[in-house]
Amino acid sequence: MKHIIRKAYWNYEKEEKWLNEMSSKGLALTDFSWCRYVFEDATEGEYIYRIELLDHPIKHPESKKYLNFLEEIGVEIVAYYMKWVYLRKKTYEGKFDVYSDIDSKIKHYKKVNLWWSMLAGVEFGAGLLNVVIGLIYLVLEGEVNFNLIIGSILSIIGFLFLGLGRPLREKIKKLKNEREIRE
């Protein structure tokens, strides 16, 4: 039976944890599109789920090469959304981690941090442009117009996106300290 749950996550690690909790209750993710999770009944704890941000869009040859490799080693690609992929592996096949050493963990956190920074950049760019147009209008006409409002909202969203990267930046710092003494 299919179960559809609508939910928004801004932290992929929390999202991953939730998917694994669902899996341990016998609900296995089979599809995902923005904020919409489709689960199907499965044996309790049948799968381990992982979420990964790829270097390239899903159709890029490099991504295809990597996803092929994952399939070869028994990893199933459940769904994807932009550069994010949802992966799972049968629990009885043993531990399933995408990154097992500090360096590759740091690399992945940096990638996710860059993702949020880029989104923030887009919002700031559009926001600032609108604020400038709005301010010019304000000076010339003495009225607050639509651009000023939209521009402010976009800039605030930009700050929120930037904030989403903060826990990642802290994790990167911790891991870098750890790397000073071990691999």
């Binding site: 490799f69 043993g94 531990k95 981690d97 995408v98 990154y99």
Partner: peptide
């Protein structure tokens, strides 16, 4: 003896 289990992405890299 199952101590080292490589991550899929780590192995690929």
């Amino acid at each position: 003896d199952e101590r080292v289990e490589l991550g899929a992405g780590t192995l690929y890299g």
